[in-house]
């Protein structure tokens, strides 16, 4: 099904992620924070809370509410200025991010409160919602919340019938790839986000999900490494 002639413009293999960089605790004043870079896409997530929730009718007396806010910085795009403030697109992405993270996090200890997750994209080159989710998952773990497992996300797609992982902006927009952002939990491999933009055959779709599964495990290793690096081991915690 894959044509032999096709190759990606940045020379990557079809199943190869872009180079990644992660740091945890980049915003000391936040309760938890993380930076995640994949290629030219850079996301920072900061977590605040649990804190007082207003307006009160949104409160949940059973558990805390997770509230995500996704935002692209004005200077982050491909040369064109991004209009600041909420947009239809950013509201949608905030919502799907919330849903992608809600299933792993346990906020039942904090009824009536809100936990805020702010995701800022400093630079964008495709896969921003996935980078945001990956960073937010690390930031929530860093903030010390009860979480069943981690979440990592990647976009997969089809370029002229070739299945590729981690699409760049060029591949997505100019080459009109089928774009499938997928978020997956680290342990049970459950899918917590799946969107699809374009047309794809059933077989290719399932193959793409398998590709995402492999990529998400690789992403999880990167997340785990970053969290471990924040707390160098050796000396024991009690100082005994």
């Amino acid at each position: 099904m894959a044509s032999k002639k096709f190759s990606r413009s940045d020379g990557r293999a079809f199943d190869q992620l872009r180079p990644m960089e992660t740091r945890v605790g980049v915003i000391p004043r936040a309760d938890g924070s993380a930076l995640f870079r994949i290629g030219n896409t850079v996301a920072i997530a900061a977590v605040y809370g649990p804190r007082a929730f207003h307006p009160t009718f949104l409160r949940n007396p059973e558990r805390g509410v997770l509230r995500c806010n996704y935002n692209m910085m004005a200077f982050s795009g491909s040369g064109e200025r991004v209009r600041p403030g909420p947009s239809r697109r950013s509201r949608e992405i905030s919502l799907v991010t919330e849903k992608a993270l809600n299933s792993v996090i346990d906020l039942s200890e904090f009824p009536n409160t809100v936990v805020d997750v702010f995701i800022e994209l400093l630079q964008t080159d495709g896969g921003t919602r996935c980078a945001g989710i990956t960073a937010a998952s690390m930031a929530l773990a860093d903030a010390g919340f009860l979480m069943k497992e981690m979440v990592s996300a990647v976009s997969v797609g089809a370029l002229e019938d070739n299945l590729v992982v981690d699409l760049t902006s060029e591949e997505d927009c100019e080459l009109k790839a089928v774009d499938i952002p997928i978020a997956m939990t680290s342990r049970s491999k459950n899918i917590t986000l799946l969107q699809l933009d374009g047309m794809i055959s059933k077989d290719n779709f399932f193959a793409a999900v398998e590709l995402a599964k492999k990529a998400c495990s690789a992403l999880h290793d990167v997340q785990a490494k970053a969290l471990r690096e924040k707390y160098p081991q050796g000396a024991d915690e009690n100082g005994k």
Binding site: V104, A141, M147, K148, E149, M150, T185, S186, R187, Q223, A224, L227, R228, Y231, Q233, D236, E237, N238
Partner: peptide, 10 residues
């Protein structure tokens, strides 16, 4: 004992 562990780790 006293090892750093990450959510989801067995």
């Amino acid at each position: 004992e006293k090892q750093l562990v990450i959510p989801g780790e067995t």
